[in-house]
Amino acid sequence: MHPGIIFFLVILGSVLFHIFTPWYWTDVASNWGSMDDTITLTFWVGGGVFIAVCLFMVYCVFKFSYKEGRRAEYKPEDKKLEKILTWATTLGVAALLAPGLIVWNQYINVPKNAIHIDVMAWQWGWQYRLPGEDGKLGSTKIKNINDNNPFGIILEDPNGKDDILIQSDVIHLKNNRPVKILLRSVDVLHNWYVPQFRAKMDAVPGVVTYYWFEPNKAGEYEVLCAEYCGVGHYGMRGRVFVKNEEDYKNWLQEQETFSDLIAKQEEIEFSKTKLAKK
């Protein structure tokens, strides 16, 4: 068989694979549909170039395959053609870059009404902290972390007292309300990633990183760790429930605040000393 035919079939197969693939992205469940749009744009432009270049190559292979006695053209360069191609490529690239930068600008500028969520990662699990009624998270310090203070909240910080602590890998989010995910890690790199929300960012020990999204589809989602974090990386999962306002409120009320936790511990301490006295 002529090699050109096989190359042509490879290109055709790629196109058909794309059309009939059962493997494609999950439905987007956040405001980042615009990321899908940039992917789609890149896909059409890039795919077009791929097909064009490859088909041209196949054409050449058919048309100009070796014939005894025939001479190839002798033409060291064609400045005009090169200029046209350079500018066309530059234009195409700019057309892809511009939307990308616009969406990135949205990505790094968080809306003011976003709920802040402290996502704390460790080898290998997640836990979460929400601000209390004051809407502010208390500041933290890794050295403060212990059994009585699982988030390492600085006790002197008044903002921290009413923080809502969720010592579980399940978090609920309010539908149609932006959230700012504040990532921190106590040991190594992690990454809090829900494929349906599209967004992601590494959690880096020593600093607090962030990103934001607005969930817009109620349901249950799986959280995956997307940055390699040691031997338990693949098992570092969690779950997110996106709920409507009422369900979210009910859930929130059941959660414990930091002052609840302190009170409970004091109680235990008190009963312990009582027991000891007896």
Binding site: W25, T38, I39, L96, L97, P99, A199, A226
Partner: peptide, 14 residues
């Protein structure tokens, strides 16, 4: 070009 373009990279990285 997908991965180099910062926004497109976000869902696809890692």
């Amino acid at each position: 070009i997908f991965l180099g373009n910062v926004t497109v990279d976000v869902p696809l990285s890692d």
